[in-house]
Structures are given as C-alpha cells and as structure tokens.
Design a protein around this nucleic acid. Structure first.
Lengths: 112, 112
DNA sequence: CCGAAAGTACGATCACTGTCAAACTTCTAT
DNA sequence: ATAGAAGTTTGACAGTGATCGTACTTTCGG
C-alpha cells in the first residue's frame, strides 16, 4: 500500500472515518445535484475516475470544491496519479454506516 | 372519506403524490435539522401530532414554514382538528418510493 | 359576543453556499 | 529548462433559505 515514497510531502488529503461523519454532513453533501452526479457517475463507472473525467456543468474551481465536500463527508477517497486526482466511491464503508442511502441516490432516474 | 361538510371552504392543504416528488426536493426537506426532528418525533410517537405538540427551537411562523416544506416533499400529511393542525408521517407511501431513506433518518442517534 | 388558542401570511434580515475568474502549484513530456 | 496539463487556492459576488416579529384568520369556550 505504501504512501508516497519520494521526497515531497504527501499530497494525500485527509480522509475521515465514515463512522465519525454525521448524517447532517452527509445530507448536506448529497443535497447538491452536481455532487450527486459525481457520486452517480462513480457508481455507474464501477471504477475510480479522475476529476477531469467526470463532466460537470461548472468550472474547475467549483468542481474542486464539490470533490472536497464529498471527501469530507466520507463519500469518496482521493489520491494522486501524476497530476491527476483520482476519485473512488467509498461504497462499502459508507453503506456500513448509512445503509440504503446510496442506493436511493444512485437509483434515482437521471435528470439534469 | 368525507371532506369538510360545513359551509366554509376546505382548510385541507394540497398534498402531492409522493411518486411525483423528486429526490432533490426530498433531500432539501431532510437536510434541515429542525425538519428531521419533526420527522423523527412523528416516527417515535407512532401517532399523529399537532404542530404545537412537537417542541422546536424556533418560533411559530418558522415552524409553519418547516411543516409546509415537509408536506410539499410528501413526507407528512396535514389535517385540521379544531384549531389544531395535525401531522401524520406518510411512512408507507414514502418508503414505497424512497426505500431505506426514512430508516436512515429516524435511525440516526439524536443530536441537537 | 368576546377573548383566548393555534396557526398562517407577510416582509425584512442575515448567514451560508455555489459560482466564477485569476493566480499559483505539481508533475510530465519534450 | 520550458511548456503544458490538471487541480488548488483565494477572494468576490449573488441567490437562496432559515429566522423573526407582527398582523391576520379560524375555531372553541363561556
């Protein structure tokens, strides 16, 4: 598993333990359509995706903000590959704490 | 059966069909702690409660607003008994459309 | 008929949050 | 070394929504 081994400081952002995230924070994260879209795309892809891979109707800086919120809410894990930041849905961990919630989110018929 | 039968107009507010309420609207309703508290209390009581019965940390007019939002989101049904407005959790109808969601909400450890 | 009780309606604040543009940081490729 | 790609950071700005107080409506009790 190994954290970054080369000279620079980690560029690994902090990730909370999902059990320490409150329902309030989770709902605040999921109430935004852009963020739900990110979650839905990660689920549909069934694989980790870089930020740029996910098409969003907002600028780069706003996208960064949304990924940040999702990470803080324990919904995604982020790690670098080169200059790209990859995003992984923390499906199992999340389901263990909030069972059924993600199912509702990703199960909803898509509407833009 | 039987709508109000006396002279005045109904004081029965409009209730949406839950199937026509979107996930966005539902999440916007549930993201507010005061509204989640209302839902939780109705669930815990296992019975319909008047607005005044539910203790909330906000003024009357604000409370009215929150009940309105919950009603529009298909989460509660409201009807009058005298001057009191009763509130009923639309548990079954809601679960049929968003299974698991209310479980997460009412299952969360209480925190004020 | 009068007053109290229970909510509702209406404006006015106020704080928060999503948004963008511009400047900056890291890493990769040439 | 230079340039470019991919994100991040940092303000600034605007829209939304929760909140309150006051006035209003409806219903019930005496």
């Amino acid at each position: 598993m190994a954290t970054a081994r080369h000279g620079g400081r980690d560029r690994v952002p902090p990730h909370p333990d999902v059990r320490e995230v409150g329902l309030q924070q989770v709902l605040e994260a999921l109430v935004d359509p852009v963020r739900r879209r990110i979650v839905t795309e990660l689920h549909a892809a069934g694989a980790d995706l870089s930020c740029g891979t996910i098409e969003l109707p907002v600028g780069k800086s706003t996208a960064t903000h949304h990924f940040h919120v999702l990470r803080e809410a324990g919904l995604i894990r982020q790690y670098y590959v080169g200059t790209s930041r990859m995003n992984a849905l923390r499906r199992e961990e999340f389901d263990a704490v909030f069972p059924g919630l993600l199912d509702v989110v990703v199960g909803e018929p898509h509407r833009d």
